[in-house]
Structures are given as structure tokens and as C-alpha cells.
Amino acid sequence: MPAETAPHERTWMAFPREGVTLGEGAETREEGYRAWTEVAHAVAQFEPVSMVVDPSEVSRARRMLSADIEIVEAPLDEFWMRDVGPTFVVDPDRPGTLGAVDWIFNGWGAPDWAEWQKSAQLARVVAAHVGAERIDSLLVAEGGGLHVDGEGTVLLTETVQLDPRRNPHADRARVEAEMARTIGATDAVWLSRGLTRDYDDFGTNGHVDIVATFAAPDHVLVHEQQDRAHPDFEVSRLVRQELSDAFAARGRAVTITGVPAPTTLRDEHGWVDWSYINHLVTNDGVVLCGFGEEAADARARETIGEAYPGRRVVSVDARPLFDRGGGIHCITQQQPTVR
């Protein structure tokens, strides 16, 4: 699996459809449609975008999306493309070959509220559409549950990969073997957990893509909650220490940069998990979550811009996404350029 900073052919997304995730009431649903659309248009500034759209939403999608965004019609229920779609890989021994890992998707552990059976087929739909070689996996996993450096290292969290609701018979060795077989990751760095809000009923149980990411093989960005009142103050310190210890044990000189969280601590549902780590790196750009805090958002753009030199950083208001359980990285999936 190439690093996210490698060249992209395009980015894949899925358009919202009515249901639990989109929310109840016309105003709430419109907010969700707008949020997904704004992210699509931000990404399209840098690279082509393909959008999977349920038949029930095609007319709305054509009305809201710019004409240069490709619409691929297919049945879906969930629309967090990072998790329901394929994870793309390339084969260094077979130039020009694109692979698509088809993980098993069960709605983040088969909670009672989730509907996922239709979207669980999207990896096959997307792979067929782009002519990718499908790589089937028996592991229940989601793209948001892993981050790679493009050189064989993958970041994982124990509470996701070893979740008994996902993989009741898995252990570290089995997960690592499957990561090596499917995405070519030969070194797994395990984190013990994710952010606090992610363990609520509508959470993922600790996805890594809201906690830490590789800006480069020797540079990791980490969510940094600076307010001691928030439980993620301790979580972010723990994650940073685990990363530091893991790379030190491997003899790797890796810079770890904390990206401070916004100052907002709570919403009507409890502690927020607002994180700038959940961004998408694109060709020549970065699409970054914004949270309506001018100073914090500007500081994050500066920090992220320094981490990805030569790329233009744009912010999109991600609060409607986080209200529904994720962020910009969660609703996008990059398709690497094959050479």
C-alpha cells in the first residue's frame, strides 16, 4: 500500500443516502448532503473525484455535485468510503497492476443501529469499475483502522483489529500476517486505543486515522489534546509515548509532531473528538478538517502545511461530519497512480 503522499489517480467517495447516519429531519439531512459535497469539491481542486451514489440519490447528487465529478451508481447504505470501500495497493513486481483489498465490513462491529450489507459490497463494485485485481480478506477491517508509511510500516489499534465483535479469534500475529499478505506491511506498530468519543455507540472503537498519521516515513503527526479537563489529554499523551517507544525499539529516528486539538471540549453528546489528524493528503494539497475556531484552524493549517511542504492546505468545516461519527479522511479513499 503506497503512502497517502504518493501520487493519486483519483479519490473515491460515497454520496449520503437517507438513514441513521444522515439523520432525521429535512434540515439535518441537507446539512449532511452539503458537508459531503463540500469535501468532494475541495478534493476536486487537486485531483479527480469519483462518487458512488445510491440509485435513490442520483438526481440529488447530479444537482449538487459539479459536472467534473464522476458518478458511479450502486446500492449502498453506509457512505464512509474509507471504511466500506477497497484499500488500494500496487505490485512492485508487476508494473501497472492495481490491487483492491476487499476487507470484510460489518458496520464497525455489528452494532444494533448499523446497516451495512449493501455497502459491504462496494469494494467489489469499485474494483470492477477501475479494473483492479481484487484481493479478498477474511479479516474484518476498515481503511480508517490503519495508516501506512509506504515502506512497510502500518499503524494499528488493538481495540479495532482485536475487537471481539470484529475478529473474535484474531491475535496480533494473525492480524500482522494478513496485513503483510494484503497491503505488504511487514512491521506493525500497535497503539492500545483511540480517542474517547470513538468508544460511544456510534464510534469505531478506536480508529487510528483520527489519532496518528505518517506525514513521511520519518515523521508522524499525533492528535494533541492540551486541556487536562478532557480525557483525551491522557489518551494523546499515551499514544505519543507508545509511538516513541515503538520507534525507539526499532532504532528508527522518527519525529513525532503533536497537532493541538481545537479548544472546544464538549457538545450536547459529551466529549468531542475533533481532530486535525483526520485529513486527506491529495496531489499537491491537503484537505483539512475545520471546526469554526479561527485561531485553532489557522494554527492547524500552518502545522499541517509545514508537515507536507509544497502542498496547499485548505480547510472544510468538518463539524457536520464529526456529528455523524467521522471526518474528512473517513469519507474519502485515495486510488494511487500505478506505474
Rank of each mutant, 00 (worst) to 15 (best):
P7S: 07
Q333E: 15
L321K: 10
A67D: 15
P260F: 02
I304P: 04
M1A: 13
Q45K: 14
G143K: 10
P7N: 06
A44P: 03
I69E: 07
A318K: 13
D136N: 05
P260G: 01
F46L: 00
A180S: 05
S137F: 07
V58M: 11
N167S: 05
T37W: 07
I183Y: 03
R228G: 04
A173W: 07
A26E: 14
V49M: 02
T264V: 12
P92R: 06
A318H: 14
E70G: 01
I210Q: 12
R166A: 06
F105P: 05
M81G: 10
Q45I: 00
F88M: 10
P95N: 02
Q45R: 15
E151K: 04
R299M: 10
R166N: 07
V125E: 05
D317R: 11
R10G: 04
L155D: 00
T5W: 06
E78T: 11
T157Q: 05
P75Q: 11
P168D: 11
R166K: 10
R301D: 03
E73H: 06
A253V: 05
E115H: 15
V130Y: 14
R252L: 13
R228Y: 02
V338W: 07
V338E: 06
Q117S: 15
V314Q: 08
E38S: 10
R193K: 12
Q117W: 10
R339M: 02
V90F: 00
V313M: 08
L280P: 00
G326D: 14
A6T: 01
D201Y: 07
E30D: 12
E4T: 03
H8L: 13
G325Y: 13
E78W: 03
E158G: 02
A123S: 15
A170D: 09
G131K: 04
E9A: 15
V189C: 00
A6V: 00
R165S: 14
T87V: 15
L98S: 01
T337K: 13
T21M: 14
P86M: 13
T196S: 13
R193W: 03
S236A: 08
E133G: 01
A188H: 01
A229G: 12
D163A: 09
R319V: 15
M81W: 11
G150T: 04
I256F: 08
V58A: 11
L221Q: 02
V286D: 04
E70L: 03
E306K: 13
V20K: 15
V316T: 14
S56W: 04
R311I: 07
Y33K: 10
C330N: 08
T153C: 02
A3D: 05
W271E: 09
D198L: 09
T337V: 10
G143L: 10
F15Y: 15
W80A: 04
Q45L: 11
E242N: 00
L221W: 03
V52M: 10
D149T: 02
A127N: 08
G107E: 11
